[in-house]
Computed example of a mutant assay.
Amino acid sequence: MEEQLYDDQTGEDALLFARVLDGAGGGRRIEWDEARNWQPDPARPLEVLWMHICRNQPGVQDWLEGMIGIPEPTAELLVSDRTRPRAFREGQTLVATLRGINFNPNAEPEDMVSMQLWCDGRRLITLRREKLQTPRDTLAEIDKGFGPTDAGSLITHLTELMIARMSRSIVDMNDHLDALEDQDPDDDAEEMLGQITTIRRNCLALKRHMSPQHEALERISRDAPAWFEDHDRREIAETIERLRRYLDDIDISKESAVVMQDEIRARAASSSEKATYMLTIVAGIFLPLGFVTGLLGINVGGMPGVNDGNAFWEVVALCSAILAVQLYLFWRWKWL
């Protein structure tokens, strides 16, 4: 169950949870009054404050500017809906916007959710609008005593979990593609094309958000302040490599979907062309026969064989001869 602490400045439940990391993998829970006035204690250099906030509550930006001292443009970015992944250094602070897969009920894979973060090495503030499972998983590890130990490792851990959860959607798409490949396109080509189109759209949406996230993580690894230690940079490098593999997997899934879509359309076009070809052959066979029977069927005087009892069979023989000649010519011309 989420912990929601009352914010007497905004009148809303802005703080979702807060912990003070002890530097050994654990942390203690603190309430809103203590969290908003918390200051680094020189006597406890390993302590780090982590606050997870719902950014769409009113007054959050004012609190970030007034109580934390974050510059107005940065505070506006942290609470805005402009959630394209990015990261930058601002003095000794790190600011980033990251995106992850939305696993909330009735959400599609392309419905990404964002998490903004601000950190000065002793305080980490993460903000979200939609529910995120990644902070909850990290919180559970801290409460059990084997979570991140400092601000840098907390950021890398959150990033790693967010990227790792993307593999679930990618694997689901690949499994769906494998199932479609085993399915007979003749059963329901239209439905298969619709499913493939959805997969392609999901691939494009994931690629659109994950590509700038790749750049944001590289920016963190390259430009983070000194409190972001070398082992944190190595962890971020591993996450970047994993994200690069996911991007390659998305490209492969997208190309596989394109190939499958082209194959289904080609088979449908081939089937249609074959039907049209057979209808053309049939029409070509019956055209001269129809001409002969139509010519002999006109009701004018002087038509030969009108009073001849064998005229009908003579016409049948003539039509049979014409049909035989046609079939022979079609065979010689390789139309049949």
Results as ranks from 00 to 15, higher is better:
Ile281His: 10
Asn102Ala: 08
Phe291Cys: 04
Thr83Val: 15
Arg129Phe: 10
Val315Lys: 13
Ile281Val: 12
Leu287Met: 07
Thr239Asp: 03
Asp188Arg: 10
Ala75Phe: 06
Gly290Ile: 14
Lys144Met: 09
Asn104Val: 03
Leu158Lys: 00
Thr93Lys: 13
Ile163Gly: 10
Phe146Met: 07
Leu64Ala: 11
Met210Leu: 07
Asp172Glu: 09
Arg136Ser: 03
Pro225Ile: 05
Ile30Pro: 10
Trp38Val: 02
Thr198Ala: 11
Asp150His: 05
Gln116Arg: 02
Val20Pro: 13
Glu160Leu: 00
Pro58Glu: 08
Gly59Trp: 00
Asn37Arg: 15
Thr74Met: 14
Glu235Tyr: 15
Glu235Thr: 09
Glu90Phe: 10
Glu215Trp: 14
Glu238Asp: 10
His176Ser: 06
Arg44Lys: 14
Ala87Cys: 04
Tyr246Thr: 09
Ile70Ser: 02
Trp331Ile: 01
Gln326Arg: 14
Ile101Gln: 03
Trp50Ile: 01
Val95Met: 03
Ser320Phe: 12
Asp178Ser: 10
Ile142Asn: 02
Cys54Asn: 15
Ser272Ile: 13
Leu318Glu: 14
Trp63Asn: 00
His157Cys: 01
Leu327Asn: 12
Glu90His: 05
Arg128Asp: 00
Phe103Tyr: 12
Glu76Phe: 10
Leu5Gly: 01
Met67Ala: 09
Gln61Gly: 12
Leu206Arg: 04
Arg129Ile: 09
Ala216Ser: 05
Leu336Asp: 06
Glu47Met: 04
Ser211Asp: 02
Val171Tyr: 10
Ile70Val: 05
Arg128Thr: 00
Leu193Met: 05
Val300Gly: 09
Thr97Asn: 04
Gly27Asn: 04
Arg332Pro: 11
Thr93Arg: 14
Ser271Asp: 11
Glu110Val: 00
Leu177Ala: 11
Gly294Arg: 07
Tyr246Glu: 08
Val20Phe: 12
Ile53Val: 08
Gln39Asn: 14
Ala266Thr: 13
Glu47Val: 08
Met51Tyr: 01
Leu94Asn: 02
Ala324Asp: 03
Glu160Pro: 13
Glu314Tyr: 10
Thr138Gln: 06
Ile264Cys: 04
Glu229Tyr: 07
His231Tyr: 08
Ile70Phe: 01
Val259Glu: 15
Cys54His: 08
Leu177Cys: 14
Leu336Val: 06
Met67Asp: 09
Leu49Ser: 02
Val325Lys: 15
Ser169Lys: 08
Met210Gly: 00
Arg29Tyr: 08
Val79Glu: 00
Asn202Cys: 01
Gly194Arg: 05
Asp41Glu: 05
Val95Gln: 04
Leu327Ile: 06
Gln213Glu: 03
Asp13Glu: 11
Pro135Arg: 00
Trp331Asp: 10
Arg234Phe: 15
Ile30Trp: 06
Val282Pro: 06
Glu72Cys: 14
Arg29Gln: 06
Phe312Ala: 08
Asn37Gln: 08
Ile240Lys: 05
His214Asp: 04
